[in-house]
Design a protein around this nucleic acid. Structure first.
Lengths: 205, 205
DNA sequence: GTCTATACTTCGATAGAC
DNA sequence: GTCTATCGAAGTATAGAC
C-alpha cells in the first residue's frame, strides 16, 4: 500500500481529492449501485478518471477494496457509538446510541450498505474478521440495552438480545430507503425512531 | 415457457420435484448466497443436476429468473397479508399483518431477500414493474396503520408513512439474521415484534 | 427435456514503458 | 502514479444431435 497519508486511524479530513483518497468512496458507491460482483474495475477506473491498470498501483485486488470498506464501515460506527455513549448523560444513552448509529450509517451509506449486504462476497478468512467486528458492535448495543433494563428504564420482560436485534432492524434497514434529499433530516428521523422504539405506536389508553 | 403445470396462481403444492418446479427456488437460494451477479448459470445447473445448456429449455435468460423471483416474492406477501387482513378480527388487524408478513417472508426467505437486495440488477423496465408492486404493498401497510390511527388504537401524533416504514424496517431486516434452526419460532418472533412495536420498550413508569 | 460443443463477451490482473 | 497492450479465465447464451 504505497499511500503516504496511511490510514493510521486519523480523521479523514484533508480531502486531498487524490486518487487514493477518493478510491474507497467511489468503490463503495459503485458496489452499492451494482453489487460487488456486478461492479467492474473498468467502471471504477472510469469514475476515477484513470485507466483500468492504474487501479492496481493503489490496490492489490478488487477483493481488498470490499474488505477495507467493510472494516472501515464497522470501525466508524463502533467508534461513533462508543464515543456518543461516553459523552451522553446517564439517562440519555439509548438516544445517543440511536443518533450516533443513524448519523454515521446514513452519512456513509454506501460503505455501510456494502458492508451489510456483501459479506457473502468475501473469502472465508475475511468474512470471519468482518463478522467478529460486527458481533462486537452487536454486543455494544445489547449491553447498552441490558444496562437500561437494570436501571429500570427498559422493560425486563423482553430478552435484551432480541430487543437489540429489533433496534438494529429498525436502524439498519433505513439505509435502503433513506434519501438525503428527502423531507426528513437525519436527526429528525433518529428522534422518531427513539420515540417509536421506546414508547411504542399504541395510542394512550 | 414450455411448462405444462403453468404458474396459474395455483398453490405450489404437488412438488413434482421436476426441474422446472425446483428451478426458481434453487435460483433464489443461489442468488441469496452469491448475489445475482456473483451467481453463475453453471453453478445453478450443477445444483439442479443438469447441464448448463439445459437450463435454457426452461428459461430465456438469467435475468428472467431474477424478475420472476422478485414478482413472485411480492405477490406472495401481498396476497398473504391481504387475506390475513380480511380474516382478522377488526382490532387484530395489525397483528395479523405482522404475522402474515413475517411468516411468508421467512418461509420464502431466499426469494424475499433476493427481491429486497437485487432490484439494482434489473433492467429499467423490469425494475419499474417490481417497484410498482413494492409500492402497492407499502400502501397496504400504511393504509392499515392509518385505519388503526383513525380507530384510536395507534398514536395520531406520528406520521402514518413513517410508522409504516418503521414497521417494515423491523420486519424486513429480520430475513438477514433469522435462522430456522434458531431458538425462536416464527410466530413467537412475530408476537415479539407486535409487542415491541405497539407497546414500546420503555419500562412502565 | 437433456446432451455435447462452441461462439462470443467481459472480467480481473499483469508486464513493462514513461 | 499513470499509461498501452495483452493474457487467461470465466461467464451467458446458442446450435444442433439425441
Amino acid at each position: 500500500m504505497p499511500d503516504s497519508s496511511k490510514s493510521a486511524g486519523l480523521p479523514r479530513a484533508e480531502s486531498q481529492s487524490s486518487t487514493s483518497s477518493r478510491l474507497l468512496l467511489a468503490a463503495a458507491e459503485l458496489f452499492w449501485e451494482k453489487g460487488f460482483s456486478g461492479a467492474s474495475t473498468r467502471e471504477l477506473s472510469e469514475r476515477l478518471g484513470i485507466q483500468k491498470a492504474s487501479l492496481y498501483y493503489h490496490i492489490r485486488s478488487k477483493d481488498d477494496l470490499l474488505y477495507e470498506i467493510s472494516i472501515r464501515s464497522l470501525d466508524d460506527i463502533q467508534q461513533a457509538v462508543v464515543t456518543a455513549l461516553a459523552n451522553a448523560p446517564i439517562e440519555g444513552r439509548l438516544q445517543a446510541l440511536v443518533h450516533a448509529h443513524l448519523r454515521t450509517a446514513l452519512e456513509e451509506r454506501h460503505m455501510h450498505a456494502t458492508q451489510l449486504t456483501e459479506l457473502r462476497s468475501m473469502s472465508e478468512e475475511r468474512r470471519s474478521a468482518v463478522l467478529a467486528r460486527r458481533d462486537a458492535y452487536e454486543r455494544t448495543v445489547i449491553e447498552t440495552i441490558r444496562a437500561e433494563q437494570a436501571a429500570g428504564r427498559l422493560r425486563m420482560d423482553l430478552d435484551a438480545r432480541y430487543l437489540g436485534l429489533g433496534l438494529l432492524n429498525l436502524l439498519n434497514w433505513t439505509i435502503f430507503w433513506y434519501r438525503p434529499e428527502g423531507p426528513k433530516a437525519i436527526e429528525e428521523l433518529a428522534d422518531f425512531f427513539c420515540d417509536l422504539y421506546i414508547n411504542g405506536a399504541a395510542a394512550d389508553r
